Simulated scan of single mutants.
Amino acid sequence: MKSNTLRVALIGSTGYTALEVARLLLVHPQAELTVATSRADEGKPLSEIHPSLAGRCEIALQPFDPDAIAKQADVAMCCLPHGASAQSVKELADAGLRVIDFSADFRLSSVELYEHWYGVTHPWPERVGNVVYGMPEFFADQIATADVVANPGCYPTSAIMPLAPLVKAGLIQTTDIIVDSKSGVSGAGRSPKLGTLYCEANEQIAAYSVASHRHGPEMQDLIQRISGSEVEVLFTPHLTPMDRGILSTIYVRPTDAAGSTPEAIAEKLMATLRQTYLGEPFIHVVDHLPSTKHVATTNHVQMTVRVSGTSNRPGRAILVCAIDNLTKGASGAAVQNMNVMFGMNQSSGLSG
Rank of each mutant, 00 (worst) to 15 (best):
M1T: 14
M1E: 09
T5I: 08
L6H: 04
L6V: 12
L10I: 05
I11V: 12
G12L: 08
Y16I: 04
L19V: 05
E20L: 01
L24W: 06
V27N: 08
E32L: 02
L33D: 10
T34N: 10
V35G: 07
A36S: 11
D41Q: 12
K44S: 08
P51D: 01
P51Q: 08
A54V: 11
G55N: 10
G55Q: 06
G55P: 05
I59H: 09
A60H: 12
L61S: 10
Q62N: 07
D65G: 09
D67H: 07
A73D: 02
A73T: 12
L80Q: 11
Q87P: 02
K90T: 06
K90G: 01
E91K: 13
E91W: 13
L92Y: 12
L92G: 06
V99I: 06
D101H: 11
S109M: 09
Y114A: 13
E115Y: 12
V120G: 04
T121W: 02
P123D: 01
W124G: 06
N130V: 02
V131W: 00
V131Q: 13
M135Y: 07
E137W: 01
F138H: 14
F139W: 06
A140E: 15
Q142H: 14
I143V: 15
I143G: 08
A146V: 14
T157M: 03
A159Y: 01
A159G: 05
A164Y: 00
L166E: 03
L171E: 00
I172L: 03
I172E: 08
Q173F: 00
T175Q: 09
D176N: 15
I178S: 09
D180Q: 13
D180G: 03
S181P: 10
K182Y: 03
S186N: 13
G187A: 08
S191D: 14
N202T: 07
E203P: 03
I205L: 02
I205H: 04
Y208L: 04
Y208G: 02
A211Q: 05
S212D: 12
R214S: 03
H215Y: 09
E218K: 00
I223C: 08
Q224K: 11
E230Q: 10
V231L: 01
E232A: 09
V233Y: 11
F235G: 05
P237S: 07
H238P: 05
M242L: 03
D243P: 05
G245F: 01
I246K: 04
S248A: 15
T249V: 15
Y251D: 07
R253T: 15
P254G: 03
S260V: 13
S260Y: 12
T261L: 02
P262M: 01
E267L: 11
T272K: 00
Y277N: 04
L278A: 15
G279W: 00
G279N: 02
V295Y: 10
A296Y: 04
T298Y: 05
T298C: 09
N299F: 09
H300A: 04
M303E: 11
N312L: 15
R316S: 07
R316E: 12
I318S: 08
V320M: 12
C321W: 00
C321Q: 02
I323V: 06
I323E: 05
D324V: 06
N325H: 10
A330R: 10
A330W: 02
S331R: 02
G332I: 07
G332T: 11
A334W: 00
M341T: 07
M344H: 11
Q346D: 09
L350K: 09
